[in-house]
Write a protein that binds this DNA or RNA. Structure first.
Lengths: 342, 342
DNA sequence: CTGTTAGCGCTTTCAG
DNA sequence: CTGAAAGCGCTAACAG
């Protein structure tokens, strides 16, 4: 009982293969009687037109590749969720590739995807800022192969494609401004994504808010946190350096950890130290106190990316202009910050 | 500059298409000179063998379909992560389908996947216990189409395939026994997955532990929590009904919510009320106090499922015996429970 | 060493 | 109303 094909049905009825094809596709060229017989037989035998053969014929696959650095990160899962929602609506499937932050795997993955198995690719590159120039080649190869590409979150000017980026500058600005308005005087940043350009944007926004309010920018208040560094130690040094009354953590897990450490050192959040985290997920909502977060609207980013890509895939025309969508963030006020007094 | 094919290269060099194919595949039948020229040209023009054509030829896709009910659930993400790890190692891609707990979408998805686009399917069906008999048909159709199938987590006896299941009975037993050993006398259960068979297994384990220790089983202590029910209200009723000193919540988010509600009512966790949750994820680790959890080893389940499926795909032989792997859970002791006194 | 042919499963002219 | 033939891109006998 192997997979049944048109050929099998054809020989079953002693008709030609194209007759069967037409019957199954309800062509008016075929007599009702024959159609009925053939279709009944097809149903009974679980006939399914071979997608691969159709792919080859139509030169499309109705499938898009999604390349993300890490699936255990809630932000990317949210994006994936948004992508899936749109692609499902529009009749596409997604093939999910996880690079585990490895450039090598990303390259391998992109090569795999550039062989016709997908109609387009959505990617958040794992490339760190300084690696992009060299890495860009692989992404550009995709375009050479005429595979539409949408980059989100971590993008690069070196690649010509549609992009969806978070307004990280504004996000950093907004968070900082909010802290200032609630009365904070000395605002530190803990940056676990120091290798990424988006961290830099947020810090630029932070600076702008500082300067606008006549606060001086102190480099020592911005702590890059490498993966192997000890957060507890970093925080101790920071807290000993100056009297700090607010901390911005550039991802969610770091925000939660900072809160636990700070609490364990006897500080009250938010009365002694206010806290704002980035990338709103599940965690910050349920810890005590619930942490005020900058939400990046991951799901929306996914939806936007998918829409952009499918548009690009289906409209072969305007191959000239690429767009870059800037997605605004929202500040979700919870209990780890003071309220604005005025 | 469209996608380049063997034909294009062939006409470029005035040779036949099969010569080019052989050159590219480094066949010894072709002269080194020609090979070099052709391969250089291929490289320069970003030639990529068309995967779809190869799929058609080889009658496989090196792709497997993964069908899960909900991607925003950390357990499923962990499973997905495990699957991805193995499939990547073994040269397979995964196409991810999310059913959002909708049986209808699941059916649609399975139909889509049974058309040759994947070599096999891994699924955790969204079907509720009472829906399985009717739904099983769609899963069985897959097998009719000779597509290997692995079910995990929520499985059904009605389907003949490889399965990976959590030992939920033992998990319920273990959690309850632990609570009893730490001195708890009145243990309640909050069950947000009342429609699922796995909830029932856990409750059976709970009963067994109770009876083994000469505790009586009180049905009223087991609260089914429907999606539209108010957890706060449910808990109030429960806490008023009897003096309860332990609660088992059958998923993580419910555990966290239970803890917050119980705390807000003035109970101390674990001194007044001990708490154990199911499905260890990120949340329970970071709330205060950190919650003792039953870990289901999602990543391992994913790895196991993927290995099972790929074995099945690649060994066309023994099509007779299906295996069911029972994955043990672990109790991760944290601060929401007392320590065993002895 | 290179080319011809057939065929993977399907649709689509174009003939009968 | 039904069938033959071509072709999607590629590989693998089998000839030359």
């Amino acid at each position: 009982m192997k997979k049944i094909t048109l050929k099998d049905i054809a020989s079953e009825f002693g008709v030609s293969i194209s007759t069967v094809s037409k019957a199954i596709n309800d062509s008016h060229e075929i007599s009702e009687k024959l159609k009925d017989k053939i279709r009944a037989f097809a149903k009974d035998n679980h006939y399914r037109p071979n997608k691969i053969a159709l792919n080859l014929l139509n030169r499309n696959t109705k499938t898009i590749g999604v390349v993300i650095p890490n699936i255990l990160n809630y932000f990317f899962v949210q994006v994936l969720y948004g992508i899936e929602k749109i692609t499902d609506e529009k009749g596409y499937s997604i093939i999910t590739c996880i690079t585990n932050q490895s450039l090598e795997k990303e390259t391998k993955t992109l090569e795999l995807l550039s062989n016709g198995s997908v109609d387009g690719v959505i990617i958040s590159s794992a490339a760190q800022e300084d690696e992009i120039p060299h890495h860009a080649k692989h992404l550009r190869d995709l375009s050479e192969n005429q595979i539409p590409l949408v980059m989100f979150d971590r993008v690069s000017d070196l690649i010509n494609c549609d992009k969806v980026v978070v307004d990280d500058f504004e996000a950093g600005y907004k968070a900082t401004k909010y802290l200032i308005e609630t009365g904070c005087k000395t605002i530190a940043i803990v940056n676990p994504i120091a290798d990424s350009i988006i961290g830099r944007f947020r810090i630029e926004g932070y600076k702008k808010a500082l300067l606008e309010n006549n606060f001086s920018f102190d480099e020592k208040l911005v702590e890059a946190l490498n993966p192997n560094e000890d957060l507890e130690l970093t925080l101790s040094l920071l807290l000993n350096y100056k009297k700090i009354d607010a901390i911005i953590a550039l991802d969610e897990i770091t925000a939660v950890k900072v809160q636990n450490i700070v609490k364990s050192k006897g500080y009250n959040v938010p009365n002694d130290i206010s806290l704002i985290g980035f990338t709103n997920g599940e965690l910050s909502k349920y810890v005590t106190p619930a942490i005020t977060m900058v939400s990046q609207h991951g799901k929306y980013i996914g939806e936007l990316s998918a829409n952009l890509l499918i548009d690009r895939i289906e409209n072969t025309k305007d191959f000239l202009s690429f767009t870059t969508k800037l997605v605004k963030t929202s500040l979700i006020e919870r209990e780890s910050t003071l309220t604005i007094s005025n």
